[in-house]
């Protein structure tokens, strides 16, 4: 369940970029070092909101009265299932709406990209007084609808299919923990509606080469059975791509980079076993060809236990239980 907390924490990322944004990021649902217990399904709705007024046109930071404040809302259904305590499957299905407060451009809405992750914990061992663990994750995302990609900053996604690999390490000492992960995301080329387009040169084709992406995520804080509170830093880079030209238009293959700082929290409600609330907020420190987004997200999760005899309905984290 904690994992969900963390799942949420990525959402900010997704949303931040959403404006001038890589949908891919949304696929990165899990960056925490928690595993669901075998045969447990943790599932629930989430809501995320992000907005920006300033953005980076290449490296030039500016605002734009013809956009005003660009905001994105995301309504998602997320879940994690414990195949075993060492192998989890995660999914996310978001519906996204966009809006510009000024200017004349029409907002967009629609079902965006479905993402699925497989998370495996190959190693968990005592190290010093704490617990050290390693995780590997693989995930993909696919657009669920034919939404328009080349309508930035108001398109709801980029239409690229993605494949990601992630390596994550975690160390927990008492109730304090730190987690670090690195992710490489392969992005498929996309096809745009126009017959030719300009990036750093004219392309006489509708096919667009989408550069891959890399992400670093570091998080640290307090973690107990009841409560998680953490600070998160995320740095996301596009490995290639071009800048938006001065007073030019954004394009899906832009070099979208972002550094973000945020906080997350999760609370397991005592009164109802298996029910938890999560929330987070974040701020964009620096970026390139993205909006300087701030945002928040909220979610409610509930654990469904599919084991015949549920020994411990709230024991959704193997790490947690092993720590105990």
């Amino acid at each position: 369940m904690r994992k969900l907390t963390i799942i949420l924490r990525n959402i900010p990322l997704l949303m931040a970029l959403c404006l001038i944004s890589p949908a891919i990021i949304r696929a990165q649902t899990d960056m925490d070092a928690i595993m669901m217990t075998k045969n447990n399904l943790c599932v629930g709705p989430m809501f995320g909101h992000s907005s920006w007024k300033n953005y980076w046109e290449g490296t030039f930071k500016r605002n734009n009265q013809n956009l005003g404040t660009v905001s994105t809302n995301m309504y998602g259904l997320m879940g994690v299932y414990g195949v075993t305590t060492k192998l989890n499957v995660l999914f996310n299905l978001p519906y996204v709406t966009t809006n510009a407060s000024q200017g004349t451009l029409h907002g967009q809405k629609g079902l965006q990209d479905f993402s699925l992750w497989i998370k495996w914990m190959p190693l968990e061992k005592q190290l010093g007084n704490g617990l050290f663990s390693i995780y590997t994750l693989g995930g993909f995302s696919v657009p669920m609808t034919n939404y328009i990609a080349d309508y930035l900053p108001l398109s709801i996604g980029l239409q690229s299919k993605t494949l990601s690999g992630r390596l994550m390490v975690d160390y927990q000492l008492g109730n304090l923990f730190a987690t670090a992960s690195g992710t490489y995301t392969y992005r498929s080329n996309i096809t745009v509606d126009e017959t030719s387009y300009y990036t750093s040169g004219e392309h006489i084709t509708s096919d667009v080469n989408m550069p891959d992406m890399a992400m670093l995520n570091i998080r640290a804080g307090y973690r107990s059975e009841r409560l998680i509170a953490e600070a998160v830093f995320t740095k996301m880079n596009t490995l290639g791509g071009t800048d938006i030209r001065k007073n030019g238009m954004p394009f899906p293959s832009n070099k979208m980079n972002s550094s973000m700082l945020g906080v997350n929290g999760k609370y397991n409600i005592k009164a109802v076993a298996g029910l938890s609330l999560t929330g987070g907020a974040y701020y964009t420190l620096a970026g390139r060809n993205v909006g300087q987004a701030t945002g928040y997200d909220l979610a409610v999760f509930y654990i469904l236990d599919f084991t015949r005899k549920a020994k411990n309905p709230t024991g959704h984290s193997s790490k947690q239980s092993s720590k105990k």
Binding site: Y151, D193, T195, S196, Y198, N247
Partner: peptide, 14 residues
Amino acid sequence: MGVVQYWADGVGTY
């Protein structure tokens, strides 16, 4: 939307 975009030929295009 696709038809509009196909013919947009606006800023930054030929």
